[in-house]
Design a binder for these strands. Sequence first.
DNA 1: TGGAAATCTTGGACCGGTTCAAGAAAAATC
DNA 2: GATTTTTCTTGAACCGGTCCAAGATTTCCA
Lengths: 357, 357
Amino acid sequence: MSRNDTDRPPTLGDLAKAAGVSKGTASNVFNRPDIVRAEVRERVLEVARSINYAGPDPKGRLLGTGRVNAIGVATTEPLAYFFDDPFARILMKGIAEACDAEGLGVSLISASDEADLAWNMHSALVDGFVLFCLTGAQKLIAQSRERRLPFVALDFGDAGDTLSAIGIDNVAAARRLARHLLDLGHRRFAVLAMDFDNEGVGRATMAQVEAAIYTTSRDRVIGTFRELEAAGIDTAGVPIFETTGEDATVGAALEEIFAREPVPTALVAQSDRIALLALDWLKARGLAVPGDVSLVGFDGVPEGETSDPPLTTMRQPIAELGRRAVRAIVERPTEIRRETLETELVVRGSTAPPPAS
Amino acid sequence: MSRNDTDRPPTLGDLAKAAGVSKGTASNVFNRPDIVRAEVRERVLEVARSINYAGPDPKGRLLGTGRVNAIGVATTEPLAYFFDDPFARILMKGIAEACDAEGLGVSLISASDEADLAWNMHSALVDGFVLFCLTGAQKLIAQSRERRLPFVALDFGDAGDTLSAIGIDNVAAARRLARHLLDLGHRRFAVLAMDFDNEGVGRATMAQVEAAIYTTSRDRVIGTFRELEAAGIDTAGVPIFETTGEDATVGAALEEIFAREPVPTALVAQSDRIALLALDWLKARGLAVPGDVSLVGFDGVPEGETSDPPLTTMRQPIAELGRRAVRAIVERPTEIRRETLETELVVRGSTAPPPAS
DNA sequence: TGGAAATCTTGGACCGGTTCAAGAAAAATC
DNA sequence: GATTTTTCTTGAACCGGTCCAAGATTTCCA
C-alpha cells in the first residue's frame, strides 16, 4: 500500500531510488552533468525516461536557491493596460528586452483594489519589482517595502532618496516645451493635464495641483507655469484641466476651454495620448492645427508621428527607462540609485506661430 | 554565534519562536486568523511587527500548496511581440482580463532559441500554459507535455485530439472570405500568406503549403482555394506569397505580383497586419483600393477599422479566445477540450466589384 | 605496488512555509 | 464539580529540490 500506486508525478527522490543513486547525484545529473560519471549519468537519464520523470520541478529548486528568475512589473491599472496604452507598451518592450537578455521572465502584477494589490504583491513569485508608478505610487511603494525585495520606481515622486527611481526631469522638460511655444509667439495657453489625484476631473486650481499625489502631472504643470511666468505671463489666467486620458474627459475639458473668450492659441497636453484625443476634437470642431491652435504633447509615442499633423512633443527614452529599471534590479539589487534620463524636444507639425488675428 | 546576527530576514520560524508559539499557530495567524484566539493573534502580530517580519514568503507556501497562482503565456516570438503585434495585444487583453477575474498573475515566457525555450518553460513558475501558437507550435507543445502542467493551444494544428485547443475554423473562414470576393465578381486573385515554415519567404507552391508546419496559414490557403475551385477558378494560376508580416516581405511580394500580367483584382491577405501593409504599398503605388484592387484581411483588429479605406476582414473573437484559454486551464485542468469559436465576415470599404476594364 | 591526488558519490541539513491528527485548554452542560 | 463539547494550539511530517562536507572510489605517479 505504498503511495506509489497513486499517479503522483515522480520526484527527484523517486528517480534516485529507482536508479539506485542518491538524491544529490540525481540532482547533479540535471544541473551539473559534467561532475557525474558518464556511465552513471546515462543510467539515471535512462531511468528518468522510463519512469517518466520530467526533470527537476522549479518549485522545489526555488526554495533552495531563493531565485525565481523573474521580475514583476506592478501597477495599479488593470492588467489590460499593459497592452493598451502606447506609453505602457513601449515601456514594457524595454523591460521585456532587458529581461530576455538576462534570461528572466516577466510577471505582470496589478490590482486596482488595495487589498488585492497587497495580496498580489505579497504572493508574486519574483526577484524584484519594477513599479510602474503612473498612479498609486504610494501603495506600490509601501507594498514593495513590506515585501523586502529590490524594487525600482519609474518616477521620482516625493519619497526623497529612500528608494531607487529612474525617470526624467519633468519640470525641466515641461519648461522646454513651454519655451518652444513662447518662442513661436504664443501668449494664451491652456493645459490639458493628467490625473492629479483620484478625486475627479475638470478645471483644477493651482492648490489642487500642488497637493497632487501624482507628481508627474504636478511637475509638468509646475514646469510649464514656471516658464510662462519667466516670460511675464500671468498664469492665474491659464486654465488647467484634469483629464483621465479618456476621450470623454478630454472632450469635456476642451468644450469648456473653447467656450470662453479669449480662447487659447496654444494647448499644452501632458501626454501624447491626451494630445491625440485633443487633435481629434479640434479637427471635428473645425479648428485647424496648427493654423488656429498649436498643440504639444509629451512622451514621444509612435502614434504621434503618424497623426495629421504629426505632434510636436517631448520625447522620453521610454524603452530605455524600462531597460534600466531591469538592470538596476538585476545588477545592484541592494543599492539605492537614482537615474535621470534626458528628454528631447521633437518639433513636428502641430505647432506654429499663433494666427495673426 | 547563532545565525541571528546575520541580517537574514526573519522567517515564520523566527517569529514563532519570538512570540512563543508554534510555527503552525504563527502560520494560522496569517492564513486563517479566525481560528486563532484574538489574544494570541494580536501578540503574534505585535511581535511580527517588532522583529520586522514581512509575512509568509510565497516561496515557502508554494512548495506546500503546489499552487503558484499564475499562468504562463508561451510563445516563440521575442517577448516584445506581446506588446507590439495588434493580434497579440488583444489576445493578451483577453487573457489578462480572465486572469484578473480569477486572481491569477500572468507570466510571459518566450525564447526563440530552442534550448532557451526549453529551459524557460521548465523553470517557469506557473500553474499552466497558454500556448500562443503563432509559430513553433510543436516546440511549445513538446515542452508543455514534458512539464506535465495543464496547457491549452490557441490553434488546432495537426495534433489530433491529444491536447486541449481553442481556435477557429480557418478553412471555413477563408472560404467565406473568398466567397465574398467571388460574389463581387472577382476572378483574378493573389494570396499574401503568413509563414508556412521557417524556411524563407516569397512565392510558395501548393506543395510547400501542404507541408507547412504552421497550420493556420496552411488552412487559410486551403479554404481560399477550395472556394475558388468551387467557383471554377483554376487555382494553379493564383500566386501565393509567403510573408513574415513585415514591411519588406509584403512589399517584395507585391512587387512580384504586380510585375506580371494579368494583375489580380483581389488580394487575399491572411492577416490584417499584412493587409494594412499591402494597403500602404498599393496607395504609394497609386493603385486605388477598392477601385483598382480589392483587399481583404483576417482577424478584425481595430487598426483595420480606421484605415483608409477601412478593411474588409474576417473577425475572430480574439479576446474571447484568450479568456476561454484561461478558463480552460483553471476550470478543468486535466480534461482535454476543444472549442471552435465563430468568426464573422466584416464588410468594410476595401472591397468592391472589380474594375470594368 | 603503495600512497597521494583527483574524481565521484553519499547522506543529511536546509530552504520557508502548510497541514493535520492529536493533545491541551477553555467553555458549556448537567 | 465532573463531564462533555468546543475551541485552540502543538509538533511533526511533508512539499521537491539544492548544497556541501565527508567518505568512497578511481586514477596517477614514484
